[in-house]
Simulated scan of single mutants.
Amino acid sequence: MRKLLVLFGILTVVFACGQEKKPINTKIMNIQYPEINANNFEQKLVASVKHYEKEPLYYMRINKSNCVVEVLVNDYPVHDDYELSNYATPLAINRAILKSGEQTLTYRLYPVGDLIKEEYGEGDTVTKLTDNTAISISIIKMDNGSEKTLEDEEVVMKHTSLTDDKGRFIASGKPYYEFTFKFNAQVPYANEGWSKGQDLSKLDQKLLEAKAVEFYKEYGKIYENKDSDLLAKLSFGEEKRNSIASYKKLSDIDELWKEYIKRLNYNSIQLQPIENYRKAFFGNGKIIFLMLNSLEYPYRGSGALRVDYIDKDGDEAVLIPDISLYLPEGKKLEDGLYMIN
């Protein structure tokens, strides 16, 4: 049977019918929104969103060549592309913009590896960036109330990768290149997000890793238990930030929750061990993410919790949820981590 990988930026729950439930230790997975449950998730989310006369949405357009790329806004991952092709549509970034003011965008370029060989059936493994490596990024703004046509786009800024005096990519011959630039964004909302989190890179790293692994393992039990209430509690903070930043309407939120619920009926759930991972810090050290040590597509950049299941067509499939954790100010690491807001 073919195997399908499904990656979700939202928390996802699946359930094997008839499978024995395993107790979930919520002291390991701290709950910031105990009042939230499956019945009031949509209502509370709708109530958190304000609407404005102007609702600016920020996007980026990326065009790359002879490289693969990862992009972070304010040190929060918003996009990765480990294929040769480019995205035609603009990519939304409001979820990483917590408030008005100066923002940072960082891109990381890597060699294409075996992608050319896989695409065309021939060619060498590329282990270094080349003379022809290039990337261009445009930050654009549109009003949420507009039809989002090309004519409505306001270009905030454009960036093109640097070259030497002979027109060659400035990092040609290197296995990695990173560049950061700044842009300004004006939004009517202000999200706390992870801004009041502690710098995890300065804490006890063995204890931090142990607490993150504990959280991932306990989180996996949600899939086995079909626990929609715990799903709602854990996902609310991040979805609240995303909904506020995207000015989501009732219909959008209703569709969001349906996507959560739809995945409650997957069959033959098998949780895989938390292994072969590394700690990755984001949000200027305030977010920890356990990332798989894999350069293989489509696992590259994915989280360490892997859930195998059988999809509706009877095929083997893989679900890897996005579990990004932080520690709010005033909290002790010994007492466990929290899902980011």
Rank of each mutant, 00 (worst) to 15 (best):
V187L: 11
K248T: 03
Q198A: 05
N276A: 12
N191M: 13
R241Q: 09
E239F: 11
S228Q: 12
L250M: 08
K196S: 10
G193S: 10
E209Y: 04
L207A: 05
D204C: 05
A245M: 04
Q270D: 12
G285I: 07
N276R: 12
I222W: 00
L256R: 09
E255H: 10
Y223A: 04
E259W: 12
N191Y: 03
D199H: 02
V213C: 04
Y260K: 13
A210T: 13
Y260F: 15
L234D: 07
I288L: 14
K249V: 11
D199Y: 00
I244K: 05
P273W: 04
I244R: 06
E239H: 12
K206M: 12
A212V: 10
G220Y: 00
K262T: 12
D229T: 13
I274R: 01
L208E: 07
I269A: 05
S243T: 08
K217F: 00
I253Q: 06
Q186E: 15
I274V: 15
Y260E: 09
K233M: 14
L271Y: 00
E255M: 12
K202L: 12
D199K: 05
I261G: 03
F282Q: 01
L250W: 04
S228I: 15
Y189E: 05
S246M: 12
S195R: 10
G220H: 03
F215D: 02
K206W: 04
R263M: 13
S246T: 10
